[in-house]
Design a protein around this nucleic acid. Sequence first.
DNA 1: ACCATCTTGAGCATATTGGTCGTGATTCAT
DNA 2: ATGAATCACGACCAATATGCTCAAGATGGT
Lengths: 151, 151
Amino acid sequence: MKVSSRGEYALRALLVLGQSCGEVLTIGEIADMTLVSCNYLEQIMLQLKNLGYVRSKRGMNGGYMLRTSPKGICIGDVIRNLEGPLSPMSCASVTAYEPCPLEAACMLQPLWILVRETVARVLDETTLDDLITGAVVTRSGGKIIESSHDG
Amino acid sequence: MKVSSRGEYALRALLVLGQSCGEVLTIGEIADMTLVSCNYLEQIMLQLKNLGYVRSKRGMNGGYMLRTSPKGICIGDVIRNLEGPLSPMSCASVTAYEPCPLEAACMLQPLWILVRETVARVLDETTLDDLITGAVVTRSGGKIIESSHDG
DNA sequence: ACCATCTTGAGCATATTGGTCGTGATTCAT
DNA sequence: ATGAATCACGACCAATATGCTCAAGATGGT
């Protein structure tokens, strides 16, 4: 149930851009702030550009800036675009559905659908702006603690 | 955010054992019912045995059986044992916490904690018996449909 | 012209995934 | 006792994904 480093790095980059409200940041500056290698970050920024999240400006005084307001950037979409479907199993995916060979006899599909629904609900209700303003509220209040159980 | 085939296969095996209430099933029978290759399934069954979910009996008329009742098998635990922490990022993991280099400045941790909390809630509240009896209830009623958004 | 900067594609080491296969070790039926 | 059935265990392997590095090109400002 992991998010890859690429997805994490992309979100970090979007966050620093979102916090710099419209300012242009170079790869080097973003790399410093996100603690991601410049070379690797280049790839990620390119992808974010192609996905329409950022604009770039070449040449002197160039760099990257957010294309839209942080309120308009849905975290669920960012993760889908960078990491693929949210569904833990393709038999429960909206965007990449594939039938499972067990078909009707499969007792797991409802579980995977439920997981996908709940994850999607959380991530789709969160915008970049929510992350910046700290509007993400956990049940534990941000502590890493098993409420009764956990992982 | 994937579950690997190994985890899916393990759950399938537990399901067929759970449905055979105490009967001993050979690897071959389980393989047939789960559509998993016999050789690969061996590895998985061995792991399930070492984890305490199943018992095995060698020799003629041997095979596998569930060690405990399906009601006592928590899906969250099964997945943790087979796939590692539920948390999408180690900075939010209860069972395998590792600090992120951004530390306090990281605006993503609350999100990852929230995701982990919600996934853990779903998986820890579900038992093998729930899967067998069809007690898993999705908001969409089992349809793969974007409620407003999804993945 | 020149330099800062993004752009692009190649390449690469490592880990993970998803297996196969062969050889034992047990146990039961006969 | 013997042999067949069955699990146990470890070696091995191919394909893919991950997480990068690097070099060379394109572009724009001064």
